[in-house]
Design a protein around this nucleic acid. Structure first.
Lengths: 225, 225
DNA sequence: TCTACTTCTGAGAATCCTCTGAACTTCGCG
DNA sequence: CGCGAAGTTCAGAGGATTCTCAGAAGTAGA
């Protein structure tokens, strides 16, 4: 079996009402998302810029910073996640402002949870390329296409096993992964630890010698020292 | 001859109330769209399949055929335009149905015209998939004549299925489309996924080996790596 | 009706991926 | 330095996946 590392799409909720936020998180988690919660705009900005989300649900009224202002900051930083604005302000003028500010959808409180979920699904369908960032220069892994972008701009296709191995290593950069550990996670039905060596060889052949580092006697690691 | 560039984006309205339809057409034309009008679902289907629209505004209640049924037929034919459903039915359940049927947005009558225009702008901003431009050199797809122009100037006629397959792939360049997914979208009444392979073969035979790329174990994709 | 084209099936050939094993190189320590 | 342990490189077997294509069945037009 392949490793199950963050396969679920990620979704961010920015909502100061902790009770509502928790409820939404529970519902959306049931839909199959990996949900992150931010309780204020500052935290939302930090998370929104730091991780790759497919969808964000942002409350319009937040302590400190307006939801639309947050959205503006994210959009200016080239964040392309689909954004649904949640608000108590239901006037037409307000909704128009929200949509023109870069929101993809707009929902007025009180709202029906099923409708929120349907709208999230609708937004998600439109999401094209999601990427997982590899902590290596500007390189990143694309789990849909199963390829790697390197700092120099080239993209390299990987096989399933190659990708799984790289992903497992990238999941905990800096950490040393032992051979038995990697074999168990990436090559579950395989007897010998030496498969790991072989696939490290394949990765280095495709991506450059220094993509994976050897820690003599312990295993392999990835990322800066 | 190169395709006309920088034309006004095309938008389709399917609305049986001729007075409302004319009013909407006027407003949306002022926004910079080239507007087509259909007064029933039959005409809407014909236009929707025949021309490349960026956005469609479809009334939920139409004589003869339900708006959602029309939407379903369009989606099954790989029409990827953004669709906004317009309706008198405002219940939550109805909205959920609409969104799950493939709509991108949903607006309840009576509505504010400014809000409709803002929603259309929001949908339009998200129109990333150049439906009739193939992301391959200068090649492009012509929906009206169902043929492809290649960079070297040659034009190649495609069959309906070939065209649908290519268009579905081109709708989301770079993304990997699985065989079951493609079979469902392009070959709705066909049992075996292997039709997809066969048609990929046909496309490659007509358009060159590298027009469609294989991602081993996952499916097919189009466009630059 | 005849002809040409399209659509779909199935099956062998070709290719790709995975893993093993073995020769070869590097490392660390005495 | 020299030796054994650890790591690297790579060829090739075997299985899975994909490619290619011939032909049957259906459709449209002359």
């Amino acid at each position: 079996m392949a490793p199950e590392i963050a396969k679920r799409p990620r979704l961010l909720i920015v909502e100061d009402d902790t009770e509502l936020a928790a409820l939404l998180a529970a519902l959306i988690t049931d839909e199959g998302y990996e949900v992150d919660l931010a309780h204020d705009a500052q935290q939302g900005l930090h998370l929104g810029l730091g991780r790759a989300y497919r969808v964000m649900v942002i409350d319009r009224r937040l302590p400190g910073m307006d939801g639309l202002e947050l959205l503006g900051k994210l959009r200016r930083r080239a964040v392309t996640a689909r954004v649904l604005i949640l608000t108590a302000l239901g006037s037409h003028a307000e909704r128009v402002r929200g949509l023109d500010a870069g929101a993809d959808d707009y929902l007025t409180k009180p709202f029906d949870f099923d409708e929120l979920l349907a709208r999230i699904r609708a937004l998600d369908r439109r999401f094209g390329d999601q990427v997982d960032l590899l902590p290596l220069g500007e390189g990143f892994l694309d789990r849909d296409t199963r390829d790697v972008s390197l700092p120099n701009g080239t993209r390299v296709q990987l096989s399933q096993r190659e990708f799984d191995l790289l992903r497992t290593l990238a999941a905990r950069p800096r950490a040393v992964h032992s051979r038995p550990q990697l074999r168990a996670q990436v090559f579950p039905d395989t007897a010998a630890d030496s498969v790991v060596d072989t696939y490290v060889y394949y990765l280095r052949r495709k991506l450059g010698r220094q993509i994976v580092q050897t820690v003599y006697g312990l295993g392999y690691r990835i990322g800066p020292l």
